[in-house]
Each structure stands twice: as C-alpha cells, then as structure tokens.
Computed example of a mutant assay.
Amino acid sequence: MQLIDDSAVVRGLTRRWLTGVDGVELVVVSTDGMQGVADATKVRPDIIILDVEMPRMDGLEALPHLRRAAPNAKIIMASTLTHKGANVTISALSKGATDYLPKPEASQLGGAEAYRDALIEKIRLFGKPEEAKRPFPAPMPLRPASVKPNEAPRPALKIPSKPELHKPPTRWTRPNAIVVASSTGGPQALQAVLPEICKKTDLPILVVQHMPPTFTSILAEHLNATCKHEVAEGQQGEQVMRNRIYIAPGGYHMFVEKKGATPTIGLNQDAQVNFCRPAADVLFNAAAKVYGAALTAVVLTGMGADGCQGVATIVDQGGRSIVQDQKSSVVWGMPGAVFNAGLAHSVHPLNEIADAVGKSLHGVMS
C-alpha cells in the first residue's frame, strides 16, 4: 500500500502502526500529491491512503492522476473533521475514491486509537476483495420489533438455510414513504440512486448513511444540488413532507413518530446500535410503526448488518424491501445480511435500484 500525507507526524505514526500487521506492507510513503502520483506510477499500489489537505497538490487534485497511475487501487481519503475536509472528501467520493477515514487533528494523533483501528480495518478489508464481497451474518435471532406497546412478542423469523428472495405480500399497500440505509460506498451509491428515485416519486425519503457530524451536512448539500427533492439533515420535530429527503445527522439516531396524525422527525443521542449512531435499525423500526405496510426499504452497500433487524420489522408489517446486489456493492455486508436472512423482495445492481423502487410503488416486484 501507499501513504500520501504531508504531515511527518502522521507518516511516522502510520509506519509504526502498520509495522508487524499481518498481511500489510507499506511499500511507499509520499509527502504530497505530486510526489504521490509519481510514486504510484512506479509501484502501482493496491491501496492508497490519500490525505485531503496538502501543499503543491491536494488530495482532490491528485485523485484523477492516481486513478490513471494505479487504476486498480482502492483509494481511501484521510480527512480531518472540518467543513473543508468533509467537503473535499464528499467530492472525492463522487469522483472515484473508494472510501474515507475521519482523521483527528495532528496534535491529537498520539492517542488516535480509533483512527488507527479504522485504518487497519479498512486496509484489511480492501486488501482482500473477497472479504469486501462477503455478506456479514444477520443478527440472531431475527425478531421484528413489536408495533403495539402491549402486543405479545412475535416468533423469531426463520433464517433460511439456502437464501432466497422473500415472497412479496399478497395484498399490496401503496407506500407513503421510502427509507434507505447505506455505509461503506454509500455516498457514491446515494449520489447515483437518489436523483433517479426523485424522478419517479414525490414520496418522502429518509436516509441513514453512517458518517460523522459535518460529513452528513456536506453530503446533504451535495445531494441537494442533484436531486429534484429538497435534501437536508433531519431536524427535531419537523414534519415529514413529500418532495423531501431527510439525512440522519451524524452523531444522532433519526426516527419517525406520530404527532397527532402527522409523521414528524425525532432525533436522540441514545447508545449506539450496531456500533453506529445514526443506525438504520432505529429509523426502520420506528418508520414501520408509523407507516405499517405503506413503506419501502432500500439497503445499499455497507459493512456490517445494520438495517437487517429493521427490514425484518418492515417485512413483518407487509412493507417492501429492495437491496443492492453483491457485484455492484463496495462491501456486501448490509444488503447481504438482508438477503441471507431471507428478507429481500428483490436484488438489483446499483443502476437498477431506482427502477425497482419505481416498480414497487405500483405493486410490481421484479
């Protein structure tokens, strides 16, 4: 792999962190984007950790040159948790970067265990393509959340020994909302899918993308520039309206609740669910309580199994579920978990997801 970073502190720490890590070899370290492109041309690395803010040539400028120099490399943007860093990172993801790493300021790197662990995890994941395509197991037992407070617990849904598509409901209910979950590879997937879904429906769309604060607001800004719907982070107490896309703010769980007859957005900072906040399961379970069968769920590329439990609740209520296929996913964890649990009504490549959503709104599942 290759590291491109102008900070001597970061370069030194990264060398130390990766020394002795099984299966990881740091073959070249570059001090800025210009040198990084020259080095990549020579060594053709399989993974590149690319700093965002650098002199001479920053990460966004270097990205297309690196893509040409090492066309098969997985490029991970290392970005500080600032407005500028987040903005450049989201732009880079839309222009071919594979993933990103939220990086603490250089003065805080001495204790950056979380950054170190995430760095090693992503290197291992993208260094083994078969791991990126491996579906993560669904949570066991998979029990849909209760919809009525005093309702007796329902039996756990049976996990099929041989995964297959879930049989669609015999009675179709026209959806009143769409919920979407994504993680690793999600920003690129959302930028491809959401503008197309907006062309097919005016239904409200509620999205959980695993991202830290600042990044989710920048993601919403970028999506707002390309979607027909208005896109913004969800705000506590606001009504869920048509022609709107609500992005769960980083650091907060987003859910839907009824205030009178009107669905409204709720936010909280309760404990992480599936090691995430926001978590898709929180949104999906809450939306199922509000919308019942009148709900379509979409699960896109992402690591882990977040969203699977929530899809179980949605399917149990008669709602629809659509997942991204393995080949087009950066990581087939989240959609793979739904499929392996027997909860997916249909599976599609990324470029067919919007059409599948459009068909599901008219009672067609294919």
Rank of each mutant, 00 (worst) to 15 (best):
V21K: 09
V21P: 09
D22R: 14
D22M: 06
G23F: 02
V24P: 10
E25H: 14
L26T: 04
V27G: 07
V28M: 03
V29W: 13
V29M: 04
V29F: 05
S30L: 05
S30R: 01
T31L: 09
G33N: 07
M34L: 15
M34P: 01
G36S: 02
G36C: 04
V37Y: 00
V37C: 13
A38V: 10
D39K: 01
T41C: 11
T41S: 12
K42W: 01
V43F: 11
R44Y: 05
P45S: 05
P45R: 04
I47L: 09
I47T: 07
I47V: 13
I48M: 07
I49C: 08
I49T: 10
I49M: 15
L50G: 01
L50R: 07
V52F: 01
V52E: 02
E53T: 13
M54Q: 03
M54K: 03
P55I: 14
P55A: 04
D58W: 08
L60Y: 15
A62Y: 05
L63C: 14
P64N: 03
L66W: 01
L66E: 02
A69V: 01
P71G: 10
N72D: 15
N72Y: 01
A73P: 13
A73T: 11
K74R: 14
I75K: 01
I75E: 07
I76H: 03
I76V: 06
I76F: 00
I76E: 00
A78I: 08
S79K: 11
S79H: 02
T82D: 06
K84R: 14
G85K: 10
G85F: 04
